[in-house]
Amino acid sequence: MNPVARLRSSSRTPFLQVVKTAVAVVAAVLLCRLLIQGPFPTFAAIAALLVVQPSINQSFVKGLERSAGVVIGVVLATAVHLLLGDSVWVVLLVVVLAILIAWALRLTPTSATQVGISGMLVLTAGVVTPNYSADRILETVVGAVVALAVNAALVPPVLLEPAHLAVARLARDTAVAFERIAVGLTEGWDHDQWHGALLQARALRSQHLRAEASITAAQESLTMNPRRSRHRDVLDRDAAVAEHLRVLVTRVTGMTRAIRDNTGPDLRADPVVGRIATEVARIGADVRALSQRVEASEMPVVEEPALTAPLEVLRPNSQHWILIGALLEDIRRVREELLGEDD
């Protein structure tokens, strides 16, 4: 891979966040110029640049991390300067001490990096005095508070739509996986066809992980968000559906693998297999209906699914009875999951 390509992200930062960052920097600098007499408020500008994040909760955490790092770094630099004076080796000593202190305190990477940077900036920016150090701490706090306020006031981000679409897409693709089993049993697929179906079913696991990551990001965006009340119910419903789909993905993958490993040319000849195919097709219809309710943002209602009563096998197949029994048990468990009866 071209190393230069790593400098670019696969997606752009939302333009609104760019605007909010610019507004936060300008507002923080202007406010500091009114409150603090002195040089350009570099610490305030840096804090504003770093604190504006995709969610208000992340901005709050970044503000705390940066403020803590600045306080430790400024206090450390001031103390060392008063004891040892001003020279190049003093700056290097402060940087080394900052690294060791951050390690000893188990600070987060943001805070740990900020300790050393703040100490170095204080020692190289001019005459170090207690008032100068206090002003730099105040600048950081002002920059962080302004950035947090701007992020909360200017259309606080809500990452609900990506999570909603991910869950609906997962439900739709899970329905397709069940329908694929029904078609394969009806048409009498061979081993290679079932192997391809298994690969597609296994891909649902990664898709479910991505849906869960989207839900986590949405929950993060709602934390401390003034608009959270109007979106919380939808997100909670999506999270509940994703948990049901986790079970269904496991079931459809297991069913596909069992058929791939145990299928045979005469499997389709057993009359029970045709009835199993019908039941699996009904499962697909139920899951597809669930995906449509998710897309329409409707409350998933526990209702009688298209599945009929459990199948009865009066005469087990002498060759495929293990596979047929496993499929019947999977159908029973899927039915319980769709009805909300599974403990």
Rank of each mutant, 00 (worst) to 15 (best):
M1R: 14
N2G: 11
P3I: 09
V4R: 12
L7R: 08
R12L: 14
R12S: 14
Q17L: 15
K20R: 14
A27L: 14
A27G: 00
I36C: 01
I36G: 09
A44M: 08
A47Q: 02
L49E: 02
L49Y: 08
V51C: 14
V52W: 05
Q53M: 11
S59Q: 06
S59E: 06
F60D: 05
R66K: 08
S67G: 13
V70Q: 14
V71F: 14
G73C: 05
L83W: 08
D86N: 14
W89N: 05
V91T: 15
A98L: 08
I99G: 12
L100H: 04
I101P: 03
A102D: 07
A102M: 10
A104Q: 13
L107G: 05
T110C: 03
T113A: 13
Q114I: 02
M120H: 11
L121M: 13
L121I: 12
G126E: 05
G126C: 11
V127H: 04
T129H: 02
P130E: 09
R136L: 15
E139I: 10
T140S: 13
T140M: 08
V146I: 15
A147T: 11
L148I: 15
A149D: 04
A149K: 05
A152R: 09
L159Y: 04
L159V: 09
L159Q: 11
H164K: 07
V167R: 09
L170S: 04
A171P: 02
R172V: 04
E179Q: 12
E179N: 08
V183C: 01
L185C: 00
G188H: 02
H191A: 14
A197Q: 07
L199K: 10
Q200A: 14
Q200E: 15
A201G: 06
R205F: 11
R210Q: 13
A213T: 11
S214M: 15
I215F: 10
I215P: 09
A217V: 14
A218R: 07
Q219G: 11
S221F: 08
L222R: 00
P226R: 00
P226T: 06
D233L: 14
V234I: 10
V234K: 06
L235N: 04
L235S: 03
D238P: 07
A239E: 13
A240S: 09
L245E: 06
V249K: 03
G254I: 00
T256L: 03
T256C: 06
R257K: 10
I259E: 09
R260S: 13
D261S: 09
T263D: 12
T263N: 10
L267Q: 01
D270A: 02
V273G: 01
G274L: 05
R275F: 13
E279S: 15
R282K: 10
G284M: 07
A285G: 09
R288V: 00
A289H: 02
S291R: 04
V302K: 05
E304L: 13
P305F: 10
E312K: 05
L314Y: 12
N317W: 09
W321A: 15
L323C: 05
L323M: 07
I324Y: 03
L327S: 05
L328R: 14
V334Y: 01
R335F: 00
E337Q: 15
L339K: 12
